[in-house]
């Protein structure tokens, strides 16, 4: 997968840029982690093999732990973005605070996830969902975009 030039590089000392500030890295990390959670949550119903569903479940909860940690770090830095101070780890902007799905985390259908990934500009390889699935689920509820 091709990752085009950007101000943020993770995991590559050689390509790290001076302008990849902690602030920018954390903001980008939050976007990726929350989007990852919403992607796994929206894709689980398309995994027919219970072994793969379990494997995906093993990963998504780690993504959610990461998302909460990054959000908590930014909380401590004073970022609110619509969440009450001290609650960003599972703030009202990602865990529905009201309505019939109150208490549920973010979730997006695979095609919507790809649109969001494309909008980040971090991936230049064209990615598509083969046979856009249509299994009954819950309404989409994505993390804030753009990330505060």
């Amino acid at each position: 997968m091709m990752m085009p030039g950007s101000s943020v590089f993770l995991n590559s000392r050689r390509r790290r840029r001076q302008n990849a500030s902690t602030t920018t890295i954390l903001k980008t990390a939050e976007a990726f982690e929350d989007l990852g959670v919403s992607a796994y949550n929206g894709a689980g119903k398309y995994l027919s093999d219970p072994a793969y569903l379990t494997l995906a479940g093993k990963i998504v909860s780690v993504e959610a732990r990461h998302a909460a940690a990054i959000r908590d770090m930014r909380d401590a830095m004073g970022v609110t973005g619509g969440d009450a101070a001290g609650t960003r780890f599972a703030g009202d902007t990602v865990v529905a605070p009201s309505g019939p799905y109150a208490g549920l985390d973010v979730k997006l259908e695979p095609s919507v996830v790809l649109s969001r990934v494309a909008a980040t500009g971090f991936v230049s390889t064209q990615v598509s969902v083969v046979n856009t699935p249509s299994k009954q689920g819950t309404p989409d509820q994505g993390p804030p975009s753009p990330t505060p």
Binding site: N41, G57, F89, A90, V95, D105, G137
Partner: peptide, 24 residues
């Protein structure tokens, strides 16, 4: 029941966020 499954997954990740915060 894919609707119930998805709702359960969405609760599952909320519990993980809680666990993360408690650890921190």
């Amino acid at each position: 029941n894919t609707v119930v499954l998805e709702a359960a997954l969405r609760i599952h990740s909320v519990e993980a966020r809680h666990a993360s915060k408690i650890r921190r």
